[in-house]
Simulated scan of single mutants.
Amino acid sequence: MTPLYYAISAILVGWHKVWGGVFGPDAGAAWVLSIICLTLVIRILLIPLFVKQIKSSRNMQLIQPKVKELQKKYGHDREKLAQETMALYKETGTNPFASCLPIILQMPIFLALFRLIDQAVKNPADPKGLMTVTLNQQFRDATFLGAKISDTFLKTDQTGVRILAAFLVLAMTATTFLTQRQLMSKNMPPDALSGPYAQQQKLLLYVLPVVFAVGGIAFPVGVLFYWTTSNLWTMGQQFYVIRNNPAPGTPAFTAKQERDKAKAARKGVKPDPAAPAADTAAEEAERAEQERRAAQRQQPKRQTRSQRKKT
């Protein structure tokens, strides 16, 4: 974690110099804004992973009909089903675990920030990374809206801290739920709303908010600001992608077509009757290409009647 301590503290201290010059180095607003800016820097750096996550999630949605066909064909043979499913993932460039990458990579950063705040509270004389004894003391004593940003909901008897922490926990939980709900209701085709992938998404829809709500009451207020800001960024980023580049066959795709038609009508451009057909043709071509690739995969060898009996 030492390299992370240096990286996180460098960004945090850099922004604190900026906001400390505006509000004063001891001000809680300076530290809260520094944490928010730290979050934005981290999320900007993670944009390439987010793009990869979106592409993988879209591929997972589009190949669900093929996955169902494989389940019907090889449902009696788990090993063969796993082999064929992995081959399908490889051919379509799909990684079923890509949707977890941004969360997984954020966890060490989250823990590093947690440890920086914890160290500032418990042992300010032993700073981590680029934090100094003076910065630790300022961090420990900084207050925002009447609450110390180093306090937690559980380890305080101050009403102001509990109100602010509870608000941030609720905001963190709500944004997590709404982000996942947005994905399922707007950018998943009907075929993807059933099967293992859909079950995974439904599990995340209800489990993640509960995990954050339960764990959030033990996080310092400063860490809650980090995670809530990160969730708001994710929700806004996902909304932009779904609105402007939705997956084919989804409610968001239909809504975008309607917006494009209305925009063309306002500009006086006559709608091209071949445009919907072209979209359909493109989708059909993509499905045909996937079927062709699937057909090229090695099929099980035919066996004679005597061989099947021996098997």
Rank of each mutant, 00 (worst) to 15 (best):
K309G: 00
W233A: 08
T254M: 06
N244R: 01
D26F: 07
D272W: 13
R140L: 11
G14P: 03
F239V: 11
I35F: 01
G93T: 07
L204V: 15
S9H: 03
L193F: 05
F177Y: 10
L178V: 13
G195W: 09
L33W: 00
Q296F: 11
Q53P: 06
K17M: 12
L38R: 07
K267C: 08
R115H: 15
N59Q: 15
A27R: 04
T250V: 00
D279Q: 07
A295T: 06
L170R: 09
G160Q: 15
M107K: 09
I36C: 07
K68R: 10
A282L: 08
K256C: 07
E284N: 00
R78H: 13
L4Q: 13
A247I: 11
A252V: 03
W233G: 08
L4Y: 14
L45F: 13
A264K: 02
T94E: 01
K52Y: 06
A82F: 11
E289F: 09
A27K: 02
K80W: 09
Q106K: 13
F253H: 10
P190N: 04
W233V: 08
R115M: 14
V211L: 09
E79Q: 14
A275Y: 10
V169R: 00
E84Y: 05
A264I: 06
K52C: 08
A255K: 08
A27H: 11
F114K: 10
D151G: 03
Q307G: 10
P25F: 08
A278Q: 13
F50D: 12
F114N: 12
T311S: 15
L204G: 15
L204A: 13
L81A: 02
Q307V: 01
V18S: 11
R78G: 14
L178W: 08
V121K: 12
K267H: 07
K186S: 14
G216C: 05
E291G: 05
F144I: 02
L232E: 02
T179W: 09
L33Q: 09
